[in-house]
């Protein structure tokens, strides 16, 4: 099953490039995971659709959200906890 991670970013967000790098790295490692990057300054409709308030917001496939920038360990932990739990 293909699972998608959504990453909402904006030009004003200082932590976003860093988080984006981590996400790309993790997702490269996992075959059934894809990443959609949405710059809300260009795609405000998407921000509206997903009711995005704070940036960065990461939406995991099970609708779990990570609000705010985090380091690799934290993001891996969340992914393991919410996405891979019971799958591997």
């Amino acid at each position: 099953m293909e699972l998608k991670v959504m990453f909402f970013t904006s030009p004003t967000c200082g932590w976003c490039p860093f988080v984006e790098g981590i996400l790309k790295k993790i997702i490269d490692e996992v075959s059934h995971l894809t990443l959609e990057i949405i710059d809300i300054s260009k795609e405000v409709d998407k921000a509206e659709e997903y009711e995005i308030v704070a940036i960065p917001t990461i939406i995991l496939p099970n609708n779990q959200r990570i609000i705010g920038g985090a380091d690799e360990a934290f993001i891996r932990e969340q992914l393991n906890f919410f996405v891979f739990m019971g799958q591997s």
Partner: peptide, 28 residues
């Protein structure tokens, strides 16, 4: 209606964020 936590959504939060999401939506 605008809220950080729409219905059916779980959140983990960190301290490193801005409000550009709600700003962009409000402006639009």
């Amino acid at each position: 209606k605008m809220t950080l936590k729409p219905q059916g959504v779980n959140l983990v939060q960190t301290e490193r964020f801005d409000l550009s999401g709600i700003i962009a939506r409000t402006k639009a």
